[in-house]
Amino acid sequence: SQVHIGNTTFTFDNPEKAQKYAEKYAKKKGLTVQKNGDVWTVE
């Protein structure tokens, strides 16, 4: 599972961890999370 934030990609061994990280980061920065398969993009 991966989380894309700008030009940075974070890889997680667990989809739940990836989703939590993406949502927490997005909330903190006032951004949105797009999910595509097991990839979350914060923008």
Rank of each mutant, 00 (worst) to 15 (best):
G30W: 03
Q2G: 05
Y25K: 02
T11W: 15
V42N: 01
V42A: 01
K28I: 13
Y25M: 11
W40S: 01
E43M: 13
D38N: 14
G37Q: 03
F12S: 03
G30T: 02
Q2D: 05
K29E: 09
D38Y: 08
G6A: 07
I5C: 10
T41Y: 14
Y21P: 00
H4N: 10
K17A: 15
L31S: 02
Q34R: 14
V39L: 06
A22H: 00
Q34A: 10
T32F: 06
I5K: 03
E16K: 10
A18I: 01
E43K: 11
A18W: 01
S1G: 12
V3G: 01
V3N: 01
Y25W: 10
E16N: 06
A22E: 02
Q19K: 11
D13S: 10
K27D: 08
T41C: 15
A26E: 02
K35H: 08
A22P: 00
T32D: 05
A22C: 06
T32A: 08
E43Y: 13
A26G: 05
T9S: 08
K29C: 15
V42S: 02
W40E: 02
V3M: 02
P15R: 03
V33A: 10
D13E: 10
Q34T: 14
Q34E: 08
T41S: 07
N14S: 15
V3T: 01
D13V: 06
N14C: 10
F10I: 15
Q34N: 12
D38G: 07
K35C: 13
K17D: 15
V39H: 12
V33W: 06
P15V: 07
A26Y: 03
V42C: 03
N36Q: 13
T8A: 11
V3L: 05
G37Y: 02
Q34G: 06
H4Y: 05
A26V: 02
K17M: 14
F12E: 04
Q2L: 12
K28H: 09
E16W: 09
Q19W: 08
K24W: 15
T9N: 08
F10L: 14
Q19T: 03
A18T: 00
T8L: 15
H4C: 14
F12R: 00
N14W: 04
V3S: 02
K20C: 13
A22S: 03
G30H: 05
K17L: 14
T32N: 09
N7F: 10
S1E: 03
S1C: 15
N7Q: 07
G30K: 04
Q34V: 14
N7D: 09
E23N: 04
V42Q: 01
K29W: 15
N14Y: 05
E16D: 11
Y25G: 01
V3D: 01
N14F: 04
K20Y: 11
K35M: 07
T8N: 12
K35L: 12
L31G: 05
N36C: 13
K27G: 07
K24E: 15
Y21M: 08
G6P: 04
K27T: 07
V39G: 12
T32V: 11
Q2T: 12
H4R: 15
T11I: 14
T41K: 06
K20R: 13
G37R: 03
E23W: 04
A22N: 01
K17W: 10
T11L: 13
K28M: 13
W40A: 03
D13K: 08
S1D: 04
L31Y: 12
I5T: 02
P15M: 07
F10H: 11
V42L: 07
F10D: 02
E43F: 13
W40C: 02
T8D: 10
S1N: 12
K17N: 12
N14G: 07
Y25V: 12
P15G: 04
F10R: 11
S1I: 14
F12T: 04
N7C: 15
K24R: 13
K27W: 07
Y21V: 08
A18V: 00
V3Y: 00
K20D: 12
V42M: 04
K20H: 09
K28Y: 10
Y25H: 06
D13M: 09
A26P: 01
N36D: 11
K20E: 14
T41E: 12
D13I: 05
T8G: 06
F10G: 04
K28C: 15
E23V: 04
H4G: 01
G37A: 04
Q34I: 14
G30Y: 02
H4W: 07
K35P: 01
Q19N: 04
D13L: 10
N7T: 09
N7E: 09
V33M: 09
A22F: 06
V39N: 11
W40K: 01
A22L: 10
G37V: 03
I5P: 02
V39Y: 07
D38M: 08
T32W: 03
W40P: 01
V3R: 01
T8S: 11
T11M: 13
E43I: 15
V39R: 05
K17I: 13
E16I: 11
K28T: 10
I5G: 00
K29P: 05
N36M: 14
D38Q: 06
K27R: 10
H4Q: 12
T8H: 15
A22T: 01
K35Y: 10
V3I: 04
A26Q: 03
I5Q: 01
K24L: 11
Q2C: 14
K27N: 09
E16S: 10
T8R: 15
A22W: 05
T9L: 15
E43T: 14
W40F: 10
T11V: 13
T41A: 04
K24I: 10
N7R: 11
Q2I: 14
T8W: 15
V39P: 00
K20N: 10
F10S: 05
K24F: 13
A18G: 01
N7H: 13
E43H: 12
V33C: 00
S1P: 13
D38I: 05
Y25P: 01
E43C: 12
V3A: 02
T41W: 10
T11R: 07
D38R: 06
K20V: 08
T8M: 15
N7V: 07
D38K: 07
D38P: 07
E43W: 07
Y21S: 01
S1L: 13
D38H: 06
F12C: 02
Q2M: 14
